[in-house]
Design a binder for these strands. Structure first.
Lengths: 142, 142
DNA sequence: CTTATATATTTGATATATCAATTATATTTG
DNA sequence: CAAATATAATTGATATATCAAATATATAAG
């Protein structure tokens, strides 16, 4: 017997983990060696190039230590270039490399296709409702 | 402008991460040094004492390598006892220690209170709908 | 200006996640 | 039965998560 109040978080967890795996699998068909989170960082930097590492950390719900290490790796893989920010020498300037931009453009259609597959047979209204319920939960616990 | 089809996974991720933090915070008021996942393993073993490590891994959506290490730790912390399973010598018998049982009993009310807080103002019907939508997404991607 | 405080990032320690390879034991098949 | 295959768990390598402490720079307060 499944009682949603007792199992909803279980289902949420399962959904997000499955989606991560699903996305990673599809990404790896098009691009080598990039994770969902690295792609997300590229996307954020692409639309807001002035983001600091701390701001990125907030956006992706990780702490700054994780971001430091992820960006180290992304620099090593030549997705990003890190240089000193002369405005505020505590920060860095993060730039997407040509390789990073290429990857991003090749991933865009995959991202769209992933969503389409995931939401097949689910109406816009139903997604709005899903979002609304999750927002309620969020505001209850934060 | 927030378009749920593009942001729902973001919200799902945020919700589950916040709930994890919220739970961990509340657990640590009652018990020292236990994580949400370790608690979950204790709960599963409590209701199904014959579970193998592989079965536990499936239940908590982790791989067997993670479970090996988590259980190592839980044995070290005296939450669990690991002994050879004479029926099938590839497996182990996992038993909850007295300390583990005590922890579990002290956490039960916290778990119930966590859910109550998280779901305040959300009807049973709404939770069922949430669950239903997530199940649809799951079946689309697996 | 100088001290105190705040902010941005890094580093170290420890836990967890994931993949691939390995070991030990069980089961199947020829 | 012996060889092949399958299953359970471990180990090693690498990435990530999290906390606390450290470092560097900026800003505020006296």
């Amino acid at each position: 017997m499944n009682v949603p109040p007792k199992t909803v978080f279980y289902t949420i967890e399962r959904t997000i983990k499955s989606y991560r795996k699903f996305s990673n699998r599809n990404f790896s068909r098009v691009v080598d060696d990039i994770t969902v989170d690295q792609k997300l960082i590229l996307q954020y930097l692409n639309s807001s190039p002035e983001l600091s590492q701390t701001e990125i950390a907030e956006l992706v719900f990780k702490d700054t230590a994780s971001i430091t290490r992820m960006i180290d790796l992304m620099v090593k893989k030549d997705f990003l270039k890190r240089s000193i920010n002369t405005e505020d020498r505590r920060k860095f300037k993060l730039e997407i490399t040509a390789k990073g931009k290429d990857i991003l453009s090749r991933l865009e259609p995959v991202i769209a296709a992933n969503r389409k597959t995931a939401f097949a047979g689910i109406s816009e209204e139903e997604l709005i409702q899903l979002d609304r319920t999750l927002q309620k939960i969020l505001s209850n616990i934060t």
